[in-house]
Design a protein around this nucleic acid. Structure first.
Lengths: 237, 237
DNA sequence: TATTCGTGACGAACGCCGTTCGTCAAGGAC
DNA sequence: GTCCTTGACGAACGGCGTTCGTCACGAATA
């Protein structure tokens, strides 16, 4: 910053052009970081830009947050505010679909958030709330406790992986959107599979790319749930 | 670099202390990057360090590789060299376990590789080889083609997610190893769940952390396969 | 043979990033 | 009124991916 002219007394009276900047606080930091991570420009969040938006320097954040990792965990739990867990009376399968669907929607709000959700481990209060609900649902479906416990892990991993998988790793918002679209790199790779060398791939090349994201998510969730029910009763491990 | 003394003629005769540095090439770049990504120091790979190891500057790599992303894709396929796909005569379930297991082992060679494998989309020749084998196995198990096509995606996503999930996002190799161990942040979070507010979590707190990585992987793979078989015959979507 | 030209190599720089250190001023304690 | 704690923060460090402009070298041309 350029040295301030000591004679410009007006600058001394009010050092900030912005009115009444809120004092730094953990909540303000998390809120701004969350704002950035879901911003449609796809830039994601960064400590420096959070500090800049809060009208301070990067070093100041370290009074409220240990680490980038901790901030990410806080932001993730903030994002999980939007997850709906239904009510105990709901039919179990519909309730599970509701939970998983709203979970997917919450962390798919932006590619940056999806990547963050996969990388961070969800241990905040919202994660607890969701885990409780899923355990309750599975118990209602007749799944034994040990199987249900492992199933929660599998289901949440599945949802965050699904969200992160299709999130481009770059800042480049490609015209086509996903990478699995016709003309994309996957389609190109499939074209390289000759009928002689890779007969099964060749035969299935249409199916490998078919379906929308929602269809495939619903299909995969159904596969998981059927598998879990099939294992219910047999203690895992 | 400091300006070279024009009188030290010996330096002119041989500019490099290292003998016969191999000429830059795509293969040499990929090989060095792979070496870095599986290095036990956990530093992962970077364009700059690859260039440094090859005794050149970062800019020189761009003659052989478009992008960091492209290099990552090449490294990933290089890593998949080690995946075993078995033979058509093998019993289908054992063969599938073999493929998934060796896939998991290949990309779990280091946390950095695991993260890379999840982020990059596998479209190289090895990915094709693996896809072909899995499709073959599922066909042998009586799964229809459309279901099998979607199942391949689900299975590979599951394996790379499993590998990446437990790979710390940091360069910090924590003493305890995984984050889900007793005393880790997950265990701490579970301790915060009171029996009144979160009865199911409280009751299942032991099961949520039980089992080794291998046990849970085997269990989850079994869940997936059962689910896929349950959907076989019903066209997906 | 002498000259031109295309091209691969690469030093230097740009603009990001997370993190640390040392300073400094404001406010409470005495 | 003075001391001391502590939050704020400017500056810097080392690392990252990527780009640009230059330059030397070998092949093609005259």
């Amino acid at each position: 910053m350029a040295p301030r002219d000591p004679f410009r007394t007006s600058e001394v009276a009010s050092r900030r052009s912005r009115p009444a900047k809120p004092p730094l606080s953990r909540d303000a930091i998390v809120e701004e970081a969350y704002r950035q991570v879901i911003a449609p420009d796809g830039a994601g969040m960064s400590l420096r830009r959070v500090a800049l938006a809060l009208d301070t320097g990067p070093a100041s954040l370290y009074a409220y947050v240990d680490d980038l990792t901790e901030l990410q965990a806080l932001v993730l739990d903030r994002a999980l505010d939007d997850v709906t867990v239904g009510a105990p009376g709901d039919p179990w399968r519909a309730r599970l679909d509701l939970i998983l669907g709203s979970y997917l929607r919450a962390i798919s709000a932006s590619p940056a958030l999806a990547r963050l959700a996969f990388g961070a481990i969800a241990v905040g209060p919202n994660a607890l709330r969701i885990t409780e609900a899923v355990l309750e649902v599975l118990a209602g479906a007749g799944v034994d406790r040990a199987t249900a416990a492992w199933a929660v892990d599998l289901l949440t991993m599945f949802v965050s992986a699904q969200a992160a998988e299709h999130a481009p790793t770059m800042h480049a918002a490609e015209p086509g959107g996903h990478a699995a679209e016709p003309g994309g790199p996957v389609a190109q790779a499939l074209d390289r599979a000759s009928a002689e060398a890779f007969p099964h791939v060749y035969a299935a090349r249409g199916d490998l790319l078919s379906g929308s994201g929602e269809e495939r998510f619903a299909w995969a969730a159904d596969v998981l749930i059927r598998g879990i029910l099939a294992r219910a009763g047999q203690a895992p491990g």
